[in-house]
Design a binder for these strands. Structure first.
Lengths: 166, 166
DNA sequence: CATGAAAAGTACACCTT
DNA sequence: AAGGTGTACTTTTCATG
């Protein structure tokens, strides 16, 4: 709901203490949040209220940031996915980043290490719309050049996984 | 639920016919899928069953791919977000892509245009875990080199928007 | 964890355009 | 014929003991 998308995570976010059941629960909900507490409980060998209690805690603690519908980019008229590396002349571009948030084509905005200083994930109707977007970016003060990587096929696209690494 | 994450979208997905109410509904659900049909109906000036009917159709048509819980990467122990460009020696690496899907650190896998042939979005515990992952990638046959861009700050991170561009 | 009240989801018949 | 409404019924949510 609110735009609390990790905007500047200067404050070191300490990882929450999660037990194995929490992580399994998170894994299930990250795949399908329409499961009822009864279903989840059956899977986790917990009673529905027990599941409810855990979910409430995970939400309250911000471990679950929200529950959203995932849309099919192609079917809503945005079949072209592109990653755009943006070279900036100064670091005082933060103000202009807010402008990009207003564009529905822009899905992600990160500042990154490496040659380019900013990385955008954008989804457009076609190459023309991408070109229009790049023109707008170039017209913004402080944005020098861009390098675009158009996605040919997407093999995986999901959110953060709670599964512990081997 | 199922792994139908746009795996090879060779078949041209024709955009669905969506009216203005559909798009507004999708916009609301893409932000917060916990809203009740009553709430949505109030917002759209529709009765709850009418909303339900539309949502059912949008789901059935695959425009809504699913409903998921969005997790806080930092709080589940993955504070380090990195985009990895992978150079491949041959195009016959598709088989090996499946192996990467099994790694919980890997969130996205795309084949892209440009110098690098593949682009990964990965979220790790720390730089050590990232290094381990890069080592694994290098050890895979057909993967030549990598260039990593570590995210310093994330200003926006959302899914495809149904809003029509100006 | 079990119980139960309140709320939401869902099916159906009817009505309006 | 399509799509919306209102009612009734079922399931889920969620607070209490």
């Amino acid at each position: 709901m609110s735009e609390e998308t990790n905007v500047v995570r200067r404050k070191p976010v300490s990882p929450a203490k999660l037990d194995a059941v929490d992580r399994r629960l998170l894994g299930l909900l990250a795949e399908d949040a329409t499961l009822s507490y009864a279903d989840l409980g059956h899977n986790l060998r917990l009673s529905p209220p027990a599941v409810h209690e855990r979910v409430k805690r995970l939400r309250h603690d911000g471990i679950i940031k929200g529950t959203v519908a995932v849309l099919n980019g192609a079917k809503i008229g945005r079949p072209l996915l592109t990653f755009v590396h943006v070279d900036t002349t100064s670091w005082a571009v933060t103000r202009h980043l807010l402008a990009l948030k207003e564009l529905p084509e822009v899905e992600e905005i990160h500042t990154v290490t490496g040659e380019s200083a900013m990385l955008l994930k954008v989804r457009t109707k076609d190459t023309q719309a991408l070109e229009d977007l790049l023109e707008r970016i170039h017209s913004i003060e402080g944005f020098k050049g861009t390098r675009s990587y158009i996605a040919l096929s997407t093999y995986l696209e999901r959110g953060p996984s709670p599964v512990l690494s081997a």
